[in-house]
Design a protein around this nucleic acid. Structure first.
Lengths: 336, 336
DNA sequence: TTGCGAAATGACAACGTTGTCATTTCGTTA
DNA sequence: TAACGAAATGACAACGTTGTCATTTCGCAA
């Protein structure tokens, strides 16, 4: 039978009920050891009886901080889930909650606009998750009192950034091919506007050029299996194609299916590597070798970076989280 | 060259700079039409020059509300992404931000614990996303002044709930089989503790029993393709098995691969239906018929339900969002 | 010019906490 | 028992905003 009038219960109400001063109630909450046990019990009892819950706004106003980190999602996709998971867990561990806003489909949001909206909300710092280019990326200036971390493969002139090492992952995959005797590597890209696809392509190019190999024309995909299948049909007709790097696993699977439908074997005729290592969830006994990024770790790093920078918002750092090549049997060693 | 001392700029600072009263600055922000244009311009200029940003805590304290809805994620998985997307978009549309906390892996969080933590944060209402059972589900009492909506297939005695119609979707799939002359339907379940798997199984049972059919022993899977493959190997040996309902698309794909490896054809020998309609992303020319739920819509409904209930937190409702059967060619019509 | 009602602006309190500093109470020792 | 230092508690201001109500300024008619 909790007493519950329409008005919210304040510390003052608790203080009166417990026969102590307002400040003592505050102390019971924030520094319980400085209050005599008998008093503390009385206050706790009163809080219980009245259903007291501390007022966040008043507390934050006085303290000058919120204990919340803002997260701006410019795009919410499958890969982001693990990253958000990492952010949320790291936040919980450090006693922070998350305040989230999202770019709506169709809406065109700049970094400045996102920062403006976020800075109206209860946040001590913020994380932008940016998978595509925005107009004001290079000119953006973060609020000087709000630590800002951008999750993006591009370097930013003023803000800290955190990213998967997409380029490095692509290079790693190419070198894996080349070290096994392949003379060239074809590339199937994801959606044009996706930064991850762009970076993977860049890494692929760089790896080939580093060995003096002229990169062939990349094939344009859209992340889905059907586009990979279409690319596979084209590649099946190229006699010099022994190695294919696809910008994600779904397209890699499409490529493999097309090659098989054309009578070619993976890996005996053509070797394939994908990205994200998620095919095993859908395909039993999947053989696809794949570059896997640690998205969760990415989120954790981003959050830690924000928290570390709370006191010095204008500090700047760049963090790269390396990928891992998950080896299966879709790559043939031609040196054998 | 924005002036920027270490201390934050308050309305009072702006007021002094603009040569007006504190209250006028407040009016410029909240009811600009009540301020003469010349005054308004002067204030805006001062705000710009000083880099003023309204203080969230003070505003919320005075207003008695936050403009934020809390979201508690008990489990963050692929299916949730679209739901969060829906919540976030609907929130943005109605001028709300989201405050998020997440159960950490391994941690055992009850509804009461989640509610306690949330009610310390800046929220006007909250949404719990519950994919597995929790100990205090039936006994949980939501804070009386905080509208609480639970996304879960189970009915709750006191709180509003929103859910996909998992059971209805499973029934729909079964009837689709039965109406096409199949005499029985086998079922491959997902992880035991997942409510969605439980509900899908329940709907499958109900549909068969409604036609006087004894449901065969369900096969236990774990959502991944390999477990579906294992189930498929077992089912391939059952002569009476003409129809298989798998609790998700990945396992359905595993089942199909196993059947083919055993020399059986889908759909000529065995028909298959999955859930979630996501196979087409990974498999080119996918033939799998699948029950698709509108997760985005689910999120939208949940958020709208919270907002609608802000004034009457103790109101209670139950919303079911129906699924859709996406027809492809994995089901044979035996009546032909 | 004066007077009037409406529009624009201002003074001050209040929201519910925490920090500062003063006061009271306690346990100990002389 | 008195006196003392430490521990416990309290009074009051302050955080930055908005609501209430009072005051000033304005535009217009007499």
């Amino acid at each position: 039978m909790a007493t519950m009038d329409k008005k919210n219960v304040s510390m003052n109400d608790v203080a009166i009920a417990a026969g102590v001063s307002l400040k003592t109630v505050s102390r019971v909450i924030n520094e319980p050891d400085s209050v005599r046990e008998s008093t503390r019990d009385r206050v706790h009892a009163a809080m219980e009886a009245l259903g007291f819950r501390a007022n966040f706004a008043a507390r934050s106003l006085k303290l000058g901080r919120y204990g919340c980190i803002g997260v701006v999602l410019f795009h919410l996709s499958g890969g982001n889930v693990d990253m958000i998971d990492g952010i949320a867990d790291a936040a919980a561990e450090r006693g922070f909650a998350l305040t989230m806003i999202k770019k709506r489909a169709g809406e065109k949001m700049t970094l400045a606009e996102a920062a403006r909206r976020m800075s109206q909300l209860p946040v001590d710092g913020m994380i932008f998750n940016l998978r595509q280019m925005v107009d004001d990326f290079d000119t953006f200036e973060a609020p000087k009192d709000l630590k800002t971390v951008i999750i993006t493969p591009m370097e930013h002139p003023a803000c800290s950034t955190v990213s998967d090492d997409q380029e490095g992952g692509a290079r790693m995959a190419c070198e894996y091919f080349l070290n096994r005797g392949h003379k060239n590597v074809y590339f199937v890209s994801g959606k044009k506007e996706a930064l991850s696809s762009q970076c993977r392509m860049k890494g692929w190019r760089a790896a080939l050029e580093a060995r003096g190999i002229e990169p062939p024309e990349p094939l344009q995909g859209d992340w889905n299996a059907d586009s990979g299948y279409a690319a596979g049909l084209v590649l099946a007709d190229k006699p010099d194609c022994t190695a294919v790097l696809a910008a994600n696993d779904c397209m890699a699977n499409g490529v493999m299916m097309a090659l098989r439908d054309k009578g070619l074997s993976v890996p005996d005729d053509v070797s394939v590597i994908g990205f994200d290592d998620e095919l095993y969830k859908t395909i039993p006994n999947s053989i696809l070798t794949s570059v896997k990024f640690r998205h969760r770790e990415l989120g954790v790093r981003a959050l830690n970076e924000v928290v570390a920078g709370l006191e010095a918002p204008s500090s700047r750092s760049r963090t790269l989280v390396s990928g891992v090549l998950v080896e299966r049997s879709s790559v043939k060693d031609l040196r054998a």
